[in-house]
Protein backbone atom coordinates (compact mmCIF):
# COMPACT_ATOMS: atom_id res chain seq x y z
CA UNK A 1 0.00 0.00 0.00
CA UNK A 2 1.26 3.48 -0.86
CA UNK A 3 1.33 6.44 1.52
CA UNK A 4 -0.10 8.56 -1.29
CA UNK A 5 2.34 11.35 -0.49
CA UNK A 6 2.77 12.15 -4.18
CA UNK A 7 -0.95 12.78 -4.68
CA UNK A 8 -2.69 16.13 -4.32
CA UNK A 9 -6.15 15.87 -2.76
CA UNK A 10 -8.25 18.93 -1.92
CA UNK A 11 -11.18 19.23 0.50
CA UNK A 12 -13.74 18.79 -2.25
CA UNK A 13 -12.42 15.36 -3.16
CA UNK A 14 -10.52 16.40 -6.27
CA UNK A 15 -7.43 14.24 -6.64
CA UNK A 16 -4.54 14.96 -9.00
CA UNK A 17 -1.76 12.51 -9.74
CA UNK A 18 1.22 14.60 -10.94
CA UNK A 19 3.07 11.48 -12.08
CA UNK A 20 0.48 10.46 -14.67
CA UNK A 21 -1.31 13.80 -15.04
CA UNK A 22 -4.65 12.09 -14.37
CA UNK A 23 -7.44 13.54 -12.24
CA UNK A 24 -10.06 11.83 -10.10
CA UNK A 25 -13.01 12.67 -7.90
CA UNK A 26 -13.55 11.09 -4.49
CA UNK A 27 -16.68 11.10 -2.43
CA UNK A 28 -16.48 11.89 1.28
CA UNK A 29 -16.21 8.28 2.32
CA UNK A 30 -13.45 7.62 -0.20
CA UNK A 31 -11.53 10.56 1.25
CA UNK A 32 -11.92 9.13 4.74
CA UNK A 33 -10.81 5.66 3.69
CA UNK A 34 -7.84 7.10 1.85
CA UNK A 35 -6.81 9.06 4.92
CA UNK A 36 -6.99 5.89 6.98
CA UNK A 37 -4.87 4.08 4.42
CA UNK A 38 -2.40 6.94 4.54
CA UNK A 39 -2.10 6.39 8.28
CA UNK A 40 -1.08 2.82 7.53
CA UNK A 41 -4.29 1.14 8.71
CA UNK A 42 -5.13 -2.18 7.06
CA UNK A 43 -8.45 -3.27 5.57
CA UNK A 44 -9.60 -4.99 8.74
CA UNK A 45 -8.91 -1.94 10.92
CA UNK A 46 -10.61 0.48 8.55
CA UNK A 47 -13.66 -1.77 8.19
CA UNK A 48 -14.03 -2.04 11.97
CA UNK A 49 -13.82 1.73 12.37
CA UNK A 50 -16.36 2.32 9.62
CA UNK A 51 -18.84 -0.19 11.02
CA UNK A 52 -18.41 1.40 14.42
CA UNK A 53 -19.17 4.93 13.22
CA UNK A 54 -21.49 4.35 10.27
CA UNK A 55 -24.66 2.44 9.44
CA UNK A 56 -22.78 -0.37 7.76
CA UNK A 57 -21.89 -3.91 8.76
CA UNK A 58 -18.27 -4.96 9.18
CA UNK A 59 -18.66 -7.45 6.29
CA UNK A 60 -19.97 -4.81 3.87
CA UNK A 61 -17.40 -2.24 4.92
CA UNK A 62 -14.60 -4.80 4.53
CA UNK A 63 -15.75 -5.60 1.00
CA UNK A 64 -16.02 -1.90 0.11
CA UNK A 65 -12.57 -1.01 1.44
CA UNK A 66 -11.03 -3.99 -0.30
CA UNK A 67 -12.67 -2.97 -3.56
CA UNK A 68 -11.64 0.65 -3.13
CA UNK A 69 -8.05 -0.51 -2.73
CA UNK A 70 -8.39 -2.56 -5.93
CA UNK A 71 -9.61 0.52 -7.79
CA UNK A 72 -6.64 2.55 -6.55
CA UNK A 73 -4.38 -0.13 -7.97
CA UNK A 74 -6.30 -0.22 -11.26
CA UNK A 75 -5.87 3.53 -11.59
CA UNK A 76 -2.17 3.28 -10.81
CA UNK A 77 -2.49 5.27 -7.56
CA UNK A 78 -1.10 2.59 -5.27
CA UNK A 79 1.11 -0.45 -5.59
Amino acid sequence: MSNFSHLAVNDNGFLFDPTSGQSFTLNTMAQEVMSAMKEGKDVDQIARELSHSYEVSYESAYEDVLEFGTKLKLYGLSL
Partner: peptide
Amino acid sequence: KKKKYERPVIQKIE
Protein backbone atom coordinates in the same frame (compact mmCIF):
# COMPACT_ATOMS: atom_id res chain seq x y z
CA LYS B 1 -26.24 7.32 16.72
CA LYS B 2 -24.36 6.04 13.73
CA LYS B 3 -23.83 8.22 10.70
CA LYS B 4 -25.34 7.53 7.25
CA TYR B 5 -23.00 5.43 5.18
CA GLU B 6 -22.09 5.89 1.54
CA ARG B 7 -19.73 3.53 -0.22
CA PRO B 8 -16.24 4.92 -0.99
CA VAL B 9 -16.14 5.87 -4.68
CA ILE B 10 -13.27 7.09 -6.82
CA GLN B 11 -14.07 8.28 -10.32
CA LYS B 12 -11.53 8.94 -13.03
CA ILE B 13 -12.09 12.20 -14.87
CA GLU B 14 -11.75 11.74 -18.60
